[in-house]
């Protein structure tokens, strides 16, 4: 399991992106990292992935501090993966299959095994129907799914999602949510960042609210989102279910359906 202890990160030019912050990712299955642009979310993700090295503090994985030699990082990244925001920057081939197989071929997995794994990953993101189309004919939402498949094929235990629904229309957003819940059901841990508060509120079970490099609130998602002050300070807004709770004096619901059921009974 992954934990972060006293992480500070200062960029070369002196910008302090994270200031002595600790995270414990065993606290939930889908963990949200939220905050305005520039709050330190991306820096945190890059640190977790070992792409940049903390100025101070440690990334702890299964009780051990992350080592930054090539081999150790490689083994580490077999267990923890990331899906970046822009699919166009993480799809390298014009052929869907080759792209999803990229990581597997790099770590020397056999072609027959690759075939199985790629097809499984593609079916998990519901991408089998367009797997023979060249990538530049795919829509944004389809590309996003290919990019996710490219990570899923590695079969890591923990997956980071950076703004997985940015630029997607409502239907595609729903599809991504479905994928997230399926991954959770498979026992994978997910760490997610997003500006869409309704989405974050719905999918995550634990949340960290970042503001200018510091965690200003954390807790079970329902609790974290009740911290009105933290949300305001960090430039976020309330999910509408939280608004209902706060303004109408009704219980806080996590799911839309529960809310409507409750209201109809009244």
């Amino acid at each position: 399991m992954i934990k972060i202890e006293g992480l500070s990160y200062t960029y070369e030019d002196g910008t302090e992106a994270l200031k002595n912050q600790s995270f414990d990712f065993s606290k939930g299955d889908i963990i949200a990292i939220i905050g305005a642009n520039g709050a330190g979310k991306s820096t945190l993700f890059l640190n977790i992935m070992g792409i940049i090295k903390p100025s101070k503090g440690k990334i702890m994985f299964d009780g051990q501090g992350l080592k930054y030699n090539k081999k150790a990082l490689r083994e580490y990244r077999k267990k923890i993966g990331i899906v970046f925001q822009d699919p166009d920057k993480q799809i390298f081939y014009s052929n869907v299959f080759d792209d999803v197989a990229f990581a597997l071929r790099n770590i020397g997995i056999e072609e027959s095994e690759i075939n199985t794994r790629v097809n499984r990953a593609l079916s998990e993101v519901d991408a089998l129907e367009f797997k023979d189309k060249p990538v530049h004919f795919l829509s944004m939402g389809q590309k996003k799914r290919v990019a996710i498949a490219g990570t899923l094929a590695i079969d890591q235990d923990i997956i980071l999602f950076d703004e997985p629904t940015a630029g997607l229309d409502p239907v595609m957003t729903e599809e991504i949510i479905k994928i997230l819940f399926e991954l959770k059901a498979q026992g994978k841990k997910i760490i997610i960042s997003s500006h869409n508060m309704d989405l974050i509120y719905r999918v995550s079970d634990y949340a960290y609210i970042l503001c200018k490099g510091e965690i200003i609130s954390e807790g079970k998602t329902e609790e974290a989102f009740l911290d009105e002050d933290a949300l305001r300070r960090s430039g976020l807004n309330e999910p509408w279910l939280v608004k209902m709770h706060r303004n109408l004096n009704i219980p806080l619901f996590k799911k839309e359906e529960d809310f409507f059921e409750f209201m109809k009974k009244q």
Partner: peptide, 20 residues
């Protein structure tokens, strides 16, 4: 953009060996 592409490749083991 180059940095982001390279990071994404690195995350999928693109720079293991010289040939890769």
């Amino acid at each position: 953009e180059a940095k982001e592409i390279r990071n994404a490749q690195e995350m999928r083991f693109g720079y293991n060996t010289f040939k890769q």
